[in-house]
């Protein structure tokens, strides 16, 4: 079963066939992972958190939920989760946003990693999707809306299955980090081929 561990500010791209499983697991508490998915047939068709949220009437991930593309074709399903606090509204973190928020960033922002993959597909940055913010939390406290530490406890995971052929990108977010040490592994991504 292949797996990869990510440090904050690094990302992995995994090609999935229908039925394949992919798990994203937090190694440390408070770490956020951002996940996007592009259809293998045309990378401009991508997981839409807006369509998914409205079609599934949910603002977080739920077990059994389908994650749809902007054209309402199924890309992934949520098979299992140990934590139900995730985000389906925010954009991927960018260096500009990180700097404006005064954050100490390490490695690449999630947006930068997603854009780099798209460039390899010959597509410009505007096609970077809104990610599923795994363990990501933002809310209003003391009258101010802001990002909070990730909801993850060590070992918390979300397991997806592929509903159609797609490439999934997972980035260990450098903006909402669970470890002070930039060399510490913070997210583990595991995948396997269920149907083969």
């Amino acid at each position: 079963m292949p797996d990869v561990t990510l440090t904050a500010g690094s990302a992995a791209a995994i090609s999935l066939s229908p039925g394949d499983a992919l798990s994203v697991r937090a190694i440390v508490a408070g770490q956020v992972a951002e996940l996007v998915a592009h259809s293998a047939a045309d990378p401009r068709e991508r997981l839409s958190t807006l369509l998914t949220g409205l079609a599934e009437e949910a603002h977080t991930l739920r077990e059994g939920m389908t994650l749809w593309s902007q054209e309402y074709r199924p890309l992934l399903r949520v098979e299992e989760l140990t934590n139900d606090e995730h985000d389906l509204a925010l954009e991927a973190c960018t260096p500009w946003l990180g700097r404006a928020l005064g954050a100490e960033l390490v490695g690449d922002c999630c947006w930068t990693s997603f854009r780099a993959w798209l460039e390899g597909e010959g597509l410009p940055e505007k096609w970077v999707p809104y990610p599923v913010g795994i363990f990501k939390r933002a809310d209003e406290r003391d009258g101010r809306y802001g990002l909070r530490p990730g909801s993850s406890r060590p070992g918390d995971l979300v397991r997806f299955s592929a509903a159609s052929a797609c490439t999934v990108l997972v980035s260990a977010c450098p903006l909402t980090r669970g470890a002070a040490d930039p060399a510490a592994p913070v997210i583990e991504v595991t995948w396997n081929e269920q149907n083969s």
Partner: peptide, 26 residues
């Protein structure tokens, strides 16, 4: 327009009067 930059840099989930609509590059 970046909805997320607008929300996080204004500290407001909703764009009430006085909020600035920010770009993707902040």
């Amino acid at each position: 327009l970046s909805p997320t930059a607008s929300q996080l840099l204004n500290g407001s989930h909703l764009m009430v009067p006085g909020c600035v609509l920010y770009s993707h590059r902040a």
